[in-house]
């Protein structure tokens, strides 16, 4: 069902809202996923692929990657602050749950207290995934507010990307939490590209050298 999210921006209760510049999401899991379908095995494909650097192709592919990562489905869990974002307008998550040290929430407000292993049926109900969480406090992997240049640099930097090497990055496109972006639950829009298109762009960007677009966006 493709419905527009009916969540309206809260008036008072999101006063601490950071201004969502453009929105999006992408769940970088701390642990590499075990998910690998035969047909779709990025590791295999990447293995066959030789790294053939091409800055123009790479940057072009990143434009598509960036659109996805900055969409609410990706960015909402990569906020600039310590509170996740929510909805297609990327408002601060109601009730302001906090990241916590390991990204799974704090006290009585842990992600998994509401977010189940699968989506809860119904409009405005918590979407689910067994690994639902934010990036941890020591590796926040912020997307919100990042320019294409900044985001690309960050993704390529092992000290900012969860210590991932190229192969791990490639694999990450099929992480279950990343895939959750394409199964967002009722009332939430999908990322602007299909997962297949996204993965293709992602791998292209990386295998062509992982170039960052110019610092000043045109």
């Amino acid at each position: 069902m493709k419905t527009k999210a009916a969540i309206k921006p809260s008036r008072y209760f999101h006063t601490k809202a950071l201004f969502a510049l453009s929105a999006m999401l992408f769940m970088i899991a701390a642990i590499a996923s075990s998910f690998r379908s035969k047909e779709d095995d990025p590791f295999k494909k990447a293995g066959k692929q030789t790294i053939n650097k091409d800055s123009i192709e790479s940057v072009k592919a990143f434009a598509s990657v960036y659109k996805v990562l900055m969409s609410p489905r990706c960015m909402n869990c990569h906020p600039a602050g310590d509170v996740p974002l929510q909805g297609d307008d990327s408002h601060l998550h109601t009730m302001l749950p906090k990241r916590g040290t390991d990204g799974t929430g704090v006290y009585a407000m842990k992600c998994a207290n509401c977010h189940q292993e699968t989506n809860t049926p119904g409009l405005h109900t918590p979407p689910g995934n067994p690994k639902w969480h934010l990036p941890p406090a020591d590796m926040k992997m912020v997307f919100q507010g990042k320019t294409p240049h900044e985001l690309a640099k960050q993704l390529m930097d092992p000290n900012q990307n969860g210590h991932k090497n190229l192969q791990q990055l490639i694999e990450h496109a099929s992480d279950t939490l990343v895939l959750a972006g394409w199964n967002p639950g009722e009332g939430r829009t999908l990322p602007p590209l299909s997962h297949k298109e996204f993965k293709k762009a992602w791998i292209t960007w990386l295998t062509k050298g992982g170039y960052a677009p110019a610092p000043k966006p045109q």
């Binding site: 009916a6 969540i7 309206k8 809260s10 209760f13 109601t94 302001l96 405005h124």
Partner: peptide
Amino acid sequence: AVDNNFSTYQMPRIND
């Protein structure tokens, strides 16, 4: 009536 739950008819919470 449009709003049907606390997700859009938001109550003040302890931090407010």
